[in-house]
């Protein structure tokens, strides 16, 4: 893999390589949120909270415990999944916007905790994290995550997730243990967020609580909703668009966020269900590899 990275950095500009690494990390994070919010329909607005848990845990494991990269990544992701379990529990009683408020509150509490966290350097942040995340590491993990996501959503569990989103009572009547599955969807989402956070920490080599604020959570939500709720290709497309957009908009300098905000509104007006709302791999596959011979519809 080192050879591949060396080769890539020979031929691709470091700036573009950087953007591609960020896209890879964001895809992992957005796919996590897609499972919780897009597929299972549990509105989570605290995704950056899980990301920060993964990032800090992985960074501290790397720096102080001397764990290998894979070990600390896994440690960070597991810690985040543990908090995902805790946050999933209130879903037994709460739903909709009350749940959204809990997730916002949770992320804010985590942020304030890290602002007071001495080993994490408080507001100064944690620096000196070893640099392990490279282009090939990120994309390898991203592709594995995408494939596993497709497998998960096509499995019995995945179909139950969709059922919960469509109609919880009907799902329960059909014999789905909604409680357990909702908690599970939070855990999977948080696990991927923690994984992405760990990769982010080992890429930036520096993390601070400000990186994981409310607006960061909103960014991930934008990616999922803009791409198309519950659709894996959609989420990937949304992530690519929303990671590239701020870079492309750099030419308009200080008007950048003005355009970004307007873009969100306009896209939602013209594509209310997201760019690829409800498009699944299956549809794309059918379109490209159909054996049926058809003429144009008249």
């Amino acid at each position: 893999m080192n050879i591949m990275d060396a080769l890539l950095s020979q031929y691709i500009d470091a700036y573009y390589l950087h953007i591609m690494v960020l896209i890879g990390i964001n895809i992992i994070l957005a796919l996590g949120l897609n499972i919780t919010t897009g597929v299972t329909g549990q509105l989570s607005m605290g995704h950056a909270g899980f990301m920060s848990i993964g990032a800090y845990t992985a960074a501290i494991l790397s720096i102080h415990m001397g764990l290998p990269f894979w070990g600390s990544l896994l440690g960070g992701a597991t810690a985040a999944a543990g908090f995902g379990f805790l946050l999933g529990l209130p879903t037994l009683r709460l739903e909709g916007d009350y749940l959204a408020m809990i997730t916002i509150g949770f992320a804010e509490i985590i942020r304030v905790f890290f602002l007071n966290f001495e080993p994490g350097g408080k507001a100064l942040g944690l620096s000196g994290i070893p640099e392990h995340t490279t282009f090939s590491v990120v994309w390898m993990i991203a592709i594995v995550v995408i494939v596993l996501n497709v497998k998960l959503l096509h499995s019995r569990i995945g179909r139950s997730f969709y059922a919960i989103r469509e109609n919880e009572i009907a799902a329960e009547a059909a014999g789905i243990n909604t409680t357990r599955l909702k908690v599970l969807s939070f855990m999977v989402g948080a696990f991927l967020a923690g994984l992405g956070g760990g990769l982010y920490a080992h890429y930036m080599t520096y993390i601070a609580p400000q990186d994981f604020g409310f607006m960061k959570s909103i960014e991930f939500l934008n990616m999922v909703v803009l791409g198309g709720m519950g659709s894996i290709p959609g989420t990937i497309l949304g992530t690519v668009v929303l990671t590239l957009a701020p870079e492309m908009l750099r030419i308009v300098a200080e008007y950048r966020l003005l355009f970004y905000g307007a873009m969100l509104v306009i896209l939602m007006i013209f594509r209310p269900n997201g760019l690829l709302g409800d498009v699944r791999w299956y549809d794309i596959k059918k379109r490209w590899f159909s054996k049926e011979v058809k003429t144009w519809e008249s």
């Binding site: 500009d13 470091a14 700036y15 950087h18 960020l22 982010y200 930036m204 993390i207 990186d211």
Partner: peptide, 16 residues
């Protein structure tokens, strides 16, 4: 004032 932004910008300044 954002981490990943400055990381992108520093690389852009140097390579582009």
């Amino acid at each position: 004032g954002d981490n990943s932004e400055i990381s992108a910008i520093a690389r852009k300044y140097i390579t582009r």
